[in-house]
Design a protein around this nucleic acid. Structure first.
Length: 590
RNA sequence: GGUUCCAUGGUCUAGUUGGUUAUGACGCCUGCCUGUCACGCAGGAGAUCACCGGUUCGAGUCCGGUUGGGACCGCCA
């Protein structure tokens, strides 16, 4: 095999009049008879090859037989294109390669879709032929963005005294949190390992061992339903430290992110990032992961409407709820009554019973509820800072329903009204989370973050009296409306840990059975500790400008958690099951 | 677990009130073409209308079910 001179996409004027050897895939053949052009593609880009009688008749003949995605190598001379033949849209458009020798390294069937960035094939088809999909430049770019992030993280954390340590993938199932992926044990039939949801407990134990600063690019597994930003296996930039405060860990994280933004995007981010309390995030943006690239904040009108003649509003407030509104700027004429009612149907899934709205026209409010606010309309418009042409949207309900509904509508209108600037990266911390949240489905209190999260210092006493009102030393890092990471200061004393588990209704026995190794470790000089994990996939997705983490994962699952290419998961041989002591029900069905 | 949408040549797609040979583009094949880069021109091939059943004289179209896929809610310490 001839040694390549360079990548196709990197051939430029410095190679003028030199002989080069190139290899790659045929992007396109354009035959004009005795003159043939071939676009040759590799990971760095495309270069135009020329074949003609004058250059080499034998190569020309072979060029006529080329088809898309054939793999070839060529030898030829880099020449300048004629003035009128220059292609300004191509990086290599000023030159071309006159081919004197060509080898077909492999032929290709006609691919099921074109290897271009404006591909039209369905997600299903693309995943089935993932190796072809990944030939597309934008897919290569996404994975290279991801690689660059990892490289920067290694560089930064290595420089800051972090030690990279691997933790097990075959570990113990834990009852809290997401559903585990289970791995049957052959040696102990009926017993199972679990794949880690995160390396949480192991990294805490590494602090107990005195490593002081740990990190890992860690694969995590959660058997829950998928979304555009959720895959069953995903990767965290996982780190843990001893003897640092929440603020110090946040500063450190900002350093990591600033390094990545500098290396990958050439952007100097403004530090420190804003810090929002969880309460403020929910109150102002209706979300625990607010998109700060635009305004349109939720405004509380409970006081304004507490004596309203509009019973829906008045009674919501009397029942301990609230009335809030958002102002969609210049949206009044863009949305018909029917469209707004469509939005109302949508927010019903968050529990909202209705969506009240007003349009502002000539300084007056108009719309179905206008008669209730006509008298105070000037006051209302002033309070909301609303102007002619704006659309006002109101939801009256419990705090949670109001936040979910208006938070959704805020994001919806942000996109629809084009209020979100491109190429902006708005980081923020969301801090001071509740320690617990109530699980309506299971009718019990669960840890909002995880059961090892330290309460705020001033709330520790609440563990004895009113644990569920306590707030936590936990923090999420949010980018453009996505949670890209989160962490906390952990509990490091057995006393507080046991109170925490008790508040979660763990019996002493159950706690010992599930987390005994951690509780025991806390008896042997467990240092104060805390850490954080950044979701690599989401971070890479956002930096690559994509809207699905599949685009920055080489071989992802589809939305049904299967992989169309390998057809995993699949049934296995009975002999394999027998060896594991497993019986599958209804094996004949399906 | 729930809601909702979708399935027509290789790909994307049109298909009316149920009515003769199922539309178009791209791609593919053959021929012509020496400056193309969305090459052009002429011709051609390519369809189990996802699957099963029903209604009907007649189903791509209507009804029921199944399968596969997309989005969303729940779920995701």
């Amino acid at each position: 095999m001839v040694k390549r001179t360079t990548y196709c996409g990197l051939v430029n004027e410095t190679y003028l009049n030199q002989e080069v050897d190139l290899a790659g895939w045929v992007q396109k053949r354009r035959s004009l008879g005795n003159l043939v052009f071939v676009d040759l593609r590799d990971r760095e880009g495309i270069v135009q090859l020329v074949f003609s009688q004058e250059i080499n008749a034998e190569a020309l003949a072979l060029a006529e037989t080329l088809r898309n995605e054939y793999v070839i190598s060529v030898h030829g001379k880099v020449v300048a294109r004629d003035e009128r033949a220059i292609n300004e849209r191509m990086k290599t458009g000023k030159i071309e390669v006159e081919v004197t020798d060509i080898t077909v390294l492999n032929e290709s069937k006609t691919p099921p879709f074109d290897i271009t960035d404006n591909v039209t094939a369905s997600e299903d088809t693309k995943l089935k032929y993932r190796y072809l999909d990944l030939r597309r430049p934008e897919m290569m770019t996404g994975l290279r963005t991801r690689a660059q992030i990892v490289k920067s993280v290694h560089h930064y954390l290595d420089d800051h005294g972090f030690i990279e340590i691997e933790t097990p993938d075959l570990t113990k199932s834990t009852p809290e949190g997401a559903r585990d992926y289970l791995v049957p044990s052959r040696v102990y039939p009926g017993s199972f390992y679990a794949l880690p949801q995160s390396p949480q407990l192991f990294k805490e134990l590494l602090m107990a061992s005195g490593f002081d600063r740990y990190y890992q690019i860690a694969r995590c597994f959660r058997d829950e339903d998928l979304r555009g930003d959720r895959q069953p296996e995903f990767t965290q930039i996982d780190l843990e430290t001893s003897f640092l405060s929440a603020e110090e860990i946040q500063d450190l994280t900002e350093g990591v992110i600033a390094q990545v933004m500098h290396d990958e995007k050439g952007i100097g981010v403004q530090l420190p990032f804003p810090r929002l309390t969880w309460n403020d995030a929910m109150a102002r943006f209706g979300s625990d992961k607010p998109d700060l690239r635009f305004g349109m904040e939720l405004q509380d009108l409970s006081e304004f409407f507490k004596d309203s003649a509009f019973k829906v509003f008045k009674s919501a407030i009397e029942n301990g709820g609230q009335v809030k509104a958002i102002v969609a700027p210049q949206a009044a004429t863009k949305y018909s009554r029917k469209q707004i009612e469509g939005l109302q149907d949508y927010i019903k899934r968050f529990g909202a019973k209705g969506l009240a709205w007003l349009k502002v026209e000539n300084g007056e409010v108009a719309g179905p509820i206008s008669k209730f606010v006509k008298e105070q309309q000037a006051e209302l418009l002033a309070q909301l800072d609303a102007h002619d042409g704006d659309l006002l949207l109101f939801v009256a309900d419990t705090q949670k329903v109001v936040a979910d509904s208006l938070g959704y509508l805020r994001n919806y209108f942000g996109k629809e009204l084009d209020l979100i600037p491109d190429n902006q990266f708005a980081f923020t911390w969301v801090v001071d989370w509740p320690l617990f949240e109530y699980d309506e489905g299971d009718q019990r209190w669960v840890a909002a973050h995880h059961p090892f999260t330290m309460p705020n210092e001033e709330d520790i006493h609440l563990l004895d009296t009113d644990p569920h009102s306590a707030h936590a030393q936990s923090y999420d890092i949010v980018l453009n409306g996505y949670e890209i990471g989160g962490g906390s200061i952990r509990i490091h004393t057995r006393e507080i840990q046991e109170k925490m588990l008790k508040a979660l209704d763990f019996s002493k026995e159950k706690a010992q059975e599930q987390f005994g190794f951690l509780l025991d470790a806390q008896d042997y000089g467990f240092p104060p500790l805390g850490g954080l994990a950044i979701g690599l996939d989401r971070f890479a997705m956002l930096l690559a400008g994509r809207d699905n983490i599949r685009d920055v994962i080489a071989f992802p699952k589809n939305s049904k958690a299967t992989e169309p290419m390998t057809e995993a998961p699949s049934r296995v041989a009975t002999a394999q099951l027998d060896e594991l002591g497993l019986n599958v029900e209804d094996e004949s069905e399906k």
